[in-house]
Each structure stands twice: as C-alpha cells, then as structure tokens.
Nucleic acid binder design. Structure first.
Lengths: 183, 183, 183, 183
DNA sequence: GATGAATGAGACTTCATTCAT
DNA sequence: TATGAATGAAGTCTCATTCAT
C-alpha cells in the first residue's frame, strides 16, 4: 500500500547482510528508509518480524535458460547463484541465519525454503534430465552431486582467496568428471 | 595464567556458538565461567578481544591417521570434520564469523587460519600424494576438488535434511568418480 | 451527535475502570468503539478530555423508592450503590480518580459531583426525615452517620474478603443501633 | 547493603503516591534518588517489582498505646491512621492499588496485608477486649463495626470537604452510640 | 588478582497527537 | 465527517565498560 514498505524492507535486508541481526537496529533501518521508527513498527510489530519479512522479500534475479547442454546449464546456475550472493551480500545473510539459528530458527527455515530449496531443485532437475537422456553413469549419486555443486561456493568463500577464472566450469567439471582416470 | 582463563574462554566459545556474537554478553560469560565481569576485563580489554581469543582457543580433536588408501583417508577427514562441527556447534560459530565479517573481519580471518586452512592442507596433501602415486587422472583439478570436499558439509546442513548413512563415503565417491560414464 | 459518541465514551469508561488511566489508550478506545483514532480526536481534543467526558457520561441505575421505613430505605440505597459499583467496575474508576488526583484533579472533582454528592444527599435526606419524624436520638450526628454509611463499602472491599450475607442490613444496623448497651 | 536502596524506594513511593503508577517513571525515580537508571535495575528487575518493593517498604509510624478506655483507644487509632495517610499521601497509593488491581493484583494484596489487615486487627482487638469487659451490647456486630471505623476516612476524603474538628471522636461516637434513642 | 556496584549509551517499543485524503 | 498513515517524545530495559575496595 504505502510506498514505504519496499524501502524499509530493502534497508533492513541491507543492514542484515552487512551488519548482522544485532547491527540491524530499527533506528538504522528507519533512517536509511527515510521514515520514523514508529512507521516501521506500524508495519512489523517486532524487530524479529521485520527481519523475517526482509528475508522473505529477497528476490533473486537472473533465472537461467535451459539449453540441454548439461555443462553449460549447470555452470549457468552456479554463475547466477554467485552473482546473487554478491549482489545481496548473501554471505552475511547466511551467516546471520546460522548465527541466530538457536534464537530464531525461522530465519534459517525461511532461507532454506526461499533460497536453498529452489536452487537445489533446479540443479536436480537438470541432472535428472541428463540421466534420462542417458548422459550419466548408471547409479550416479545425484543427491550427493547436488551437495557438491551447492557447497562449492561456500568452500571457496571460506577459503578466502579469489574465485578463479572459469570457476563455474571448473566446479561443474569436478563434479561431472571426477578425479580418477577413465578406464 | 590463572586457571580462570580456560573457563572463561570455554564459556565464551559456547555462547558464541549457541547465541551468536550479540548473545555472548560479558555477563553471561562471567556467570557461566563462575567469575565476576571485572575478572574477564582483567584479561581481555574488550568484548571483541574476548571473542577473538575464544575462537583462537578452539582445539579440534581427532587427527586422522594416513593409511595411503585415498578413499578411506579422505572420508576419515570428512568424518572428523563433521564430528568437530557438531561437538563445537561450529555452524553457529561459522555463521557468527560470516555475520560479523564487515564489523570484525579478524574473526573470519582467524577462523580461516585456524580451522579452514589446516583442513584444506590436509586434504590437499592426500590428493597430492595420490597424484604422485599415479592414482589420479592427468590434469585433475585438485584445487576444485578440495572446494568440493570442503563445501559438502555446509551444503548438506543448509539443505536441512539429515546426513545420509555413509555420507563421508558418498561425498568422496562423488568427487573421485564423477557423474559421467567411464567411457 | 453522531452515534459514535456513545460507543466511544462507553469504551473509554470500560477501559478506565479495568485498565486505569494509563491503560486507557486512544488506540484501545478507538478499537473497542469501532472507529478510527482520528474520529476520537474529532470529538475530544486530548486524552484527559476524553477521560473526563467518559466519567461525566456515567449513568447510575436503580433509583430507589422511599418507603418511610428508615432501615429499609437506607439498605436499599446501600444495595443500589453496591450494585452500581460492581456493574461499572467503579473501584477501578475511584482508584483512577485518586491516583490521578495530583495530575488531574478535575477527575476526582467530577466524580464527587456526579456520584458521591447525590448519594450523600439521598442518605442525608432519609436521615433528616427520620429525625423530623422523631425516630432518631436527640443530637444524633448525621454528618458522621453519612460518612459511616458511605465508607462501609470501601472498607469491606479493601479488607478483601467477601461481602457477608445481609451486608446492607448489617451496616444500617451498625449505624443505627451502635455498639453500646441500651439503657 | 548499598545505601542507595532506601533512597530509591523512598523516591519510588513518593512518586507512586503523587503521580500514580504511570507517573512513576524509572527516570524520575533514579533522578530523585540520585542514581542512574541502571542502578535501579540492578536491584529490581522490572518497574512492577520496584513498585511492589516500594509499597512493602512503607513503614507506618505512631503505634498507639492501649489505655483500656475504648473511646480513647479507638480514636487514637483513627488519628494515627489519618496522620499516616496524610504523611504518605496514601490516598494516592490506595488509588493506584485500586486502579492497577486488574493489571497488578499483587499491589492491592500487599497493601491489604501490610496496611489494612494490621489496622483492622488492632481495632478488632480493642473491641473484643471491650466486649470481654462487658462494655458492649450483647450480640454487637463487631465485624461490621470495624468496617464502619475503617471506611469513615475514605468517605470523608471522597466527600471533599475538610475533616471536622474532633473527627476521630465523632466517628467513634457514631459507631458506639448509634443513631437511635436509648429506649 | 578479584569483585560488587555503578553508569552512559543505546536498544526496542508505545502512545498521544497530527494531517492529507 | 471519517480515516489510514505518520511521527516525536518518552518509557522500559540491556550491556559494555569502569572503579573503589
């Protein structure tokens, strides 16, 4: 209704990502959104509600087109994921969800539902299709493959160095080809 | 020096893991360690210093023995990692480091140095040895392989479901064997 | 004029009685009356004005008929008083008037004028008539008698126990008969 | 322990009496007691606790000596009661207890226990003794007599006029002698 | 070295009141 | 007339930090 909603949620999300839950003060949100604190409380009754709403407000961009080329499609998803994480400062958001898991499990649950699950489903669908086309080895462990694809970004970020050139393709190759000699 | 140091750091780490940085109040640390707040300040001048010291105080357990069997050795490391994460509530600690990265980058830096880097080095050494023994495909991308191995736990945890039986072995297989048919 | 007036005043009085002056928020009044806050402000410019108006709006019920039987007539008034107090949660209203006496003396003044004074006058008229009929002792202190009759309810309420069976009659007897032996 | 306790409770009680529960802000209490707000919270965890403690801290003065002269002894108690009420601004306190009865019944309960009950017991003991000495009419209703004695002050205060000269004695006479002619 | 007591700054939240529609 | 939206001021409470003993 009022146009302030979006500004408030954006500000909240930004603060959540950069300053954590503790750093997301209502004062700061209100100031950044250009409204008074009471205006924030008019919409969300508590700080926790605001945080949850901000998380639910995340809109990820860049749906990828499926081409049927497994390597290319998987890499496209990884690329979109990486860009979204950077754009939204999502490492901070993820950290906040994990850090608050004990105190506010709904944050992590929401993040799972909104961000993790859809991406996993996308990856899984690509792999299923490839298997149906006979492109994958018999008995390939697709569940684990999704874990490997999804975890690679976190591992790289946690390692601390830069993402190498062609990171997406290298991850996809790692998962598709494996380390062992063929035959 | 005094015997209180350990109790304080333990308490701080426990709170860091379960309540996040914001939830680790000096009051709570002092109470859990059985000392007065002033005693805490006698040792660490600020809350941030205490948090950093607590993180530096982490001692991971369960060094694994190297057998020369690559599958087994990699799985052993993953298993130790998983047990340590659970024992220390490390997902909360990792989340805290990520959430505070902007405000306190030294936390993530310390975590990288103390926890991430050694584990990556261990994995990398195993892979290097295997390559030297000729067990790996020519041109195998070991950097990426380490990312895949390190990220799998996070991806599984973020997915929300349980860890499957034989999780370590499945991850190792995924990384070694790949998804493609062996020509 | 508008039909909302009554609803607002009723809601205000109810809240005044049950939640005190502090608990009578304009938000609550408006919600309970089914109007918006601004509608309330359209009629009464401040919260204090609304409270005063609500108090002035009280209508006590159950005028008693005078029979000429002093005992019965006094008891009837006490009974009506007791029922009104219960119906209107008047102990809360009285408390509020006393609690706010320093801050808003007009509340207590209004309560005196609207509720206390008429009741005292009724009692006094009955006693005067009885005296004129020669039913009372010469030199009987009717001022004090009215105080005793009026105060009995408060004393019983403050004592905390239940009102005994036949309370009205017992109070009247106490005031008429006294404690000393006759003759 | 710390000498501030008394100052804080005194300030709280003063504000409770003059400004009501809502007007007793922690800010005001702290300022009047000459300490910081946090110091208040160090002792009483919530405002309600402070209010209760302040009420429990009331010390009434002027125990009366029993002479065996019923009229004089009753009047002495009424006089002490009246002086205490004035000294402590107790009408405000009573009002606050009544106004908050729904929200905080413990306040009224405490007031009953500390102030009402002892006074009633004193009066009752005097009356019982007089009865045992044969000074009272057979079957005199002493419960009701205590109500009359206790309520007289409230009734007079609520009436709004001044307390007449010899008020105590007039009340006692009213209760002892009654209004009816001595046959 | 240890502590109990104290506090300033700042957090979340409420509420009386105003105003454009 | 009626209202939804907005807000400044104020209130309760927390916490990192200091200091006298």
């Amino acid at each position: 209704m009022a146009a302030h909603d979006g500004a408030i949620l954006d500000a909240a999300l930004r603060l959540l990502a950069t300053a954590g839950y503790g750093g997301m003060t209502i004062d700061a949100v209100a100031a950044e959104a250009g409204v008074s604190k009471a205006t924030v409380y008019l919409r969300w009754p508590t700080k926790a509600d605001l945080a949850t709403a901000a998380l639910a407000h995340v809109r990820e961009t860049g749906g990828t087109r499926v081409t049927g080329d497994l390597r290319r499609d998987l890499a496209a998803i990884l690329g979109a994921m990486r860009r979204n994480i950077r754009r939204l400062s999502a490492t901070g958001i993820i950290g906040m969800c994990l850090a608050e898991e004990r105190a506010a499990p709904e944050l992590l649950a929401l993040f799972r539902e909104r961000s993790i699950a859809p991406r996993r489903a996308e990856l899984r669908a690509l792999l299923d299709a490839a298997r149906d086309r006979g492109e994958l080895r018999d008995g390939a462990d697709l569940d684990t493959a999704v874990d490997l694809l999804m975890g690679a970004h976190h591992a790289r970020y946690m390692a601390g160095g830069p993402f190498p050139r062609g990171w997406e393709e290298r991850v996809v190759s790692g998962v598709l080809d494996g380390l062992l000699p063929t035959a």
